[in-house]
């Protein structure tokens, strides 16, 4: 599905060591891979590279294969058509991810219009029985699917009137709506309270099961990684220092950094 091979990323003039140094990674459909590492280790840079939004950095070496197609060679226009449809992303702060001057309804509609041909209603949304009523009905079903009551009224509200948990769950549902083969989550729970974060992760597990997405979950929280990831890659100073099944890595870390990470984790 997604294979990253020997990805090396640095400023155009080069940098020693590179920001990302010979990074390799593989994801299969239906699999959640955790990318764990401290601040500045290159986690978010890797996510931006996968979307080819690495500027002002440059990809100096390596390949990014999405279903066998190398993203490194694609033109801007080709890449733009992939974003949102083939690779979607959810960012850390849901409140900043939406335009503060438009209602949520208009932003949901705009998203749905942009991706109208690719939208796939999840079984859980179809179960709400509101499908087949055009885009509005499908948006309402999407909102109902993430536990938002009276969606019709909610349409007229602005992002600041929603809680972060509501926004992030909605953003996750939106990102997964066009059923992108690859979904990247950049610290999705970092700004949420623990119970809300927990609920978002349950949403995520349900989405992955329903849609067979491959998910790259970026986090610095090992508890989050332990909860939802089948395998984990540990990024340290731009290098993948350890990767493998989540259970193995968490119970039997081999690299010094991972050991320190596991020891310091707050379960």
């Amino acid at each position: 599905m997604l294979e990253v091979e020997g990805l090396t990323v640095a400023p155009p003039a080069g940098h020693d060591p590179p920001i990302l140094n010979d990074v390799s990674l593989a994801l299969a459909p239906g699999q959640v891979v955790g990318l764990v590492g401290e601040s500045g280790s290159g986690k978010s840079t890797l996510a931006r590279c996968l979307l080819r939004l690495e500027a002002p950095l440059c990809i100096h070496a390596g390949r990014i294969l999405l279903n066998g197609r190398d993203l490194v060679g694609l033109s801007r226009g080709e890449m733009r058509r992939l974003r949102g449809r083939q690779i979607a992303m959810v960012q850390q702060d849901p409140a900043a991810a939406l335009d503060p001057i438009f209602t949520l309804g208009s932003q949901l509609r705009e998203f749905a219009d942009t991706h109208a041909r690719d939208l796939v209603d999840a079984p859980s949304e179809r179960a709400n029985g509101r499908n087949g009523q055009g885009l509005e009905g499908r948006i309402d079903a999407l909102l109902a699917g993430v536990g938002i009551d009276r969606p019709g009224r909610r349409h007229r509200q602005f992002p600041h009137q929603w809680s972060r948990g509501m926004l992030q769950r909605t953003l996750l549902a939106m990102a997964a709506w066009p059923a992108p083969p690859l979904l990247i989550l950049d610290e999705p729970t970092a700004s949420l309270d623990p119970p809300i974060a927990d609920r978002l992760l349950l949403d995520l597990q349900q989405t992955v099961t329903e849609r067979r997405l491959a998910v790259l979950l970026i986090t610095h929280d090992l508890a989050v990684a332990a909860q939802v990831c089948q395998s984990i890659a540990v990024l340290y100073r731009g290098r993948i220092v350890e990767s493998g099944a989540a259970r193995t890595i968490l119970s039997n870390p081999s690299h010094d950094y991972t050991r320190a990470l596991v020891a310091s984790a707050d379960w």
Binding site: P194, D198, A226, Q227
Partner: peptide, 21 residues
């Protein structure tokens, strides 16, 4: 922390989002 992933903590169900101010 020795044996595998930690099960999700048992949390009380979160009520559906109500009206906000």
């Amino acid at each position: 922390m020795t044996d595998g992933p930690v099960p999700p903590a048992r949390m009380p169900p979160v009520p559906p989002y109500g009206n906000r101010r």
